[in-house]
Write a protein that binds this DNA or RNA. Structure first.
Lengths: 270, 270
DNA sequence: ATGCCTTTGTGAACGCGTGCACAAAGATTG
DNA sequence: CAATCTTTGTGCACGCGTTCACAAAGGCAT
């Protein structure tokens, strides 16, 4: 999963539900919804855990934070659990969402059908390009950034999605926060700084790929018997001297693009 | 970030680098690259940590797993550190990547400029729609699913990106794995089951939004003094009886769409 | 060369998350 | 009604990750 784990370190477990559990509730909800559509009345923790890709003990402990919603010897009532989790996640109400930055990614997000089915509603699409203003994307006309504050206050929006280039992200973020947004999903490859009380989650494709590459390299290295990375304490390095002579080579020979590559047409995180 | 934390539980720290540290290395790398482009020669752990949005002690400990690359009283050599982290992440080599499922999201990913600048190269775009075959997306002609196995073996691809509808994801995954792929980045809203040795990371927009909604609801509830969720032990629930009478109401009144909403035109995770 | 100042690298403590293993609870059967 | 079987709910222990706090190390000025 993509990433984004810079959350609220303290104050995290508000009414007792651990952050890790909250992160898994949507997973359970999805599995339960599928069961519900197949009209399955009850599930055991074992079955549901398997469907959600987790350990059954973990699932039971997770549910125990919500209350005792199961029946021993039987399992959990699917419909009831769907309702309880939905309520706990706040999905029984409608959440208007604004998407800022209607590039390739923003358009993809706007077209995403999963929004409405989970209580989220795209209230507006916003972009800084005047040429885009008025043009419909996914049936919704794009509005200019100038309208940002008005849109948010008029619709009572509290969740914003940033899909702009990295260079614009912080500025957009500041305006969103000033306008009253308190939760942000950030697709731009930047570390956003926000005031206390504002939640930020990050989705970053490039980071995910780099993590995969690390493990991939390790797999390839072990396979050949030779560990890929240099071993921690192994005497003085022979080839490259540590502090001096920083090897300016390699690193995939980055061509001198225009500034940070996050400033690119920005389609996805860098 | 997006999510995806179902990793390799054991065997995780191969040569001693903790998983949590690996996940942060790309963050440091990005900050360092920005500094490098501004020709900054050295940084202190404090400065770099601030730029990466982490705690300085954590950063120093992270770097300590890589070796002693800093100079006490001075800081870290930017260029050298960029090189070391790149090497550790396996970014000094080229990673061919295939993207399967060229819908809205797949196209957005294909257009993403951040690939090449980090050692990743889009080797091929693959889609099951024969109508798309041959048509160029981001300058690369889309190929039909039939070619999948050949493409992967011919190009020695080991990393695959799944951007298909949920219904097709597992099948595509199986074919990718059978063809030799050992790392998968999954955008489809499904739990993929893979054999031992294959890494899967998941990016799921809907989950991120639901987590935000949870905190948002909590914020709104606390603000008014009344906790949103039911308090754990507070005597017998008055309104709704726990096991019996599963409230089939609410849950955002899902309209009977075609099957699981993951089967939709699928643009993003559900 | 000596002393001071800055910053790294890390030992140790703490807290969260995970998984085991089992007792309690309810269903079910005879 | 009693015995048995299934499955939940959770106490407990363990390990990872985070953070503090400080000693060691290097630069720099005198």
């Amino acid at each position: 999963m993509a990433t984004g784990r810079n959350h609220r370190p303290a104050t995290s477990r508000s009414r007792g539900i651990p952050e890790a559990t909250v992160a898994r509730l949507p997973l359970y909800l999805r599995a339960l919804t599928a069961l519900s559509e197949r009209s399955v009345p009850t599930v055991s923790s074992e079955e549901l855990a398997s469907a959600a890709g987790v350990n059954s003990a973990k699932l039971r402990k997770d549910f125990s934070y919500l209350g005792s919603y199961g029946t021993r010897g039987v399992g959990y009532d699917v419909e009831y659990l769907v309702y309880q989790i939905s309520r706990e996640l706040g999905l029984t109400q409608d959440w208007p969402v604004v998407i800022v930055g209607i590039g390739n990614l923003g358009a993809a997000l706007a077209n995403y059908g999963g929004f409405a089915s989970r209580g989220f509603r795209v209230a507006a699409l916003i972009d800084a390009d005047p040429g885009l203003a008025g043009k419909p994307v996914a049936g919704i006309p794009v509005q200019h950034t100038d309208e940002l504050e008005k849109i948010i206050s008029d619709n009572g929006v509290s969740i914003g999605v940033i899909a702009t280039p990295a260079g614009a992200a912080q500025q957009v973020c500041d305006r969103l926060v000033a306008a009253g947004i308190t939760s942000i999903l950030n697709f731009a490859p930047t570390v956003l700084s926000v005031p206390e009380g504002v939640d930020v989650r990050k989705v970053d494709l490039s980071i995910e790929l780099q993590i995969l590459a690390f493990h991939e390299q390790r797999k390839a290295g072990e396979e050949l018997g030779a560990p890929p990375g240099r071993r921690p304490g192994e005497g003085p390095e022979a080839d490259t001297a540590p502090p001096a002579a920083p090897p300016a080579v390699a690193v995939t020979k980055r061509p001198p693009e225009s500034g940070t590559d996050g400033d690119l047409p920005a389609v996805m995180p860098a």
